[in-house]
Design a protein around this nucleic acid. Structure first.
Length: 278
DNA sequence: ATACCATGAACAG
DNA sequence: TGTTCCTGGTATC
């Protein structure tokens, strides 16, 4: 099942690019007007009433988090986790909810249904700030300072493969982008952070910025553009429309070596033992 | 009908 | 480190 442009269905599990893309798309549909907020499934019910009918001022993405600034001062917080997804229905008529819809936001332009989130709650601005304060720089934000990432990586003895999933160090990367960022820079995922050169961490940052920006544009993860030696069309897309060098590959797309995995940060980190020597 | 799997993260101990 | 929660598509009986 493929997400169609404009109809807003996001089937893939989200990393930071998904969150920024959602913020962008949903801003056009919801921001600047009163929004009917409800919880067909019920779990968000008492909180929904706090913002039901209130004007939505802004949707702000930060790493894998979404913050909703409501005109009455409340701040909505959504984190999709592994299973969360939005469905968008264009038009003034809210249709029957599909599946378990935790939160529904409707305007006369569209209805946005949220299911399966790890977090869906109403916060104060102070609580929002606490969440943001514990996040590392987000490569998709203009206010991000990569020097913070360099410092935090070099202070850690953890393997870089685990560090890149730590949202306190850098926010927005998930299991796909960490593998691809390490691959593109020829870095073995088990190398300890404190043994990386500053230039290497800066390169990981630049790669992340480029990949995530491209991911927002494509609304999916296609990393194989990022090497000059990759001829266009050489690499076939998966059923989901994604394409990676090592993530979930049997063989390295560049050199054909069997891809290995290392359990890092509680999930398998795919890498090419030839392109990413220890 | 049931099992299993997935690109996340909080929490307990 | 292990456990738990969130959902739904696909595979397997």
């Amino acid at each position: 099942m493929r997400a169609r442009a404009g109809s807003g269905t996001v089937a893939a599990i989200p990393e930071g690019h998904t969150i920024h893309r959602i913020a962008k798309d949903h801003t056009k549909l919801l921001v600047g007007r009163p929004v009917a907020v409800s919880s067909p499934q019920g779990r968000f019910q008492p909180s929904a009433a706090l913002v039901d009918g209130v004007v939505l001022d802004r949707i702000e993405p930060y790493g894998k988090h979404l913050f909703y600034s409501w005109a009455n001062g409340h701040v909505g917080h959504v984190h999709l986790g592994l299973f969360g997804r939005f469905r968008v229905h264009l038009g003034p008529e809210p249709p029957e909810p599909i599946g378990m819809v935790r939160m529904r936001m409707s305007t006369d332009a569209a209805t946005v249904d949220l299911s399966g989130p790890t977090a869906c709650e109403i916060l104060t601005k102070a609580e929002r700030n606490v969440i943001v304060a514990r996040l590392g720089p987000d490569p998709l934000r203009r206010d991000a300072k990569p020097s913070v990432v360099v410092e935090r990586v070099q202070r850690s003895k953890q393997p870089i493969g685990a560090i890149l999933l730590d949202q306190r160090v850098i926010s927005g990367l998930g299991n796909v982008y960490r593998a691809e960022a390490l691959f593109l820079n020829g870095i073995h995922p088990r190398r300890p952070g404190n043994e990386l050169h500053a230039a290497e961490v800066e390169a990981l940052w630049s790669t992340s910025v480029a990949m995530l920006r491209r991911g927002v544009k494509d609304n999916r993860i296609i990393t194989v553009h990022h090497l000059e030696d990759d001829r266009p069309g050489r690499t076939r897309l998966t059923k989901r429309g994604t394409a990676t060098y090592v993530y979930h590959r049997d063989r390295c797309v560049r050199c054909g070596t069997a891809v290995e995995t290392a359990d890092l940060g509680g999930r398998p980190c795919y890498f090419c033992p030839v392109c990413q020597p220890a």
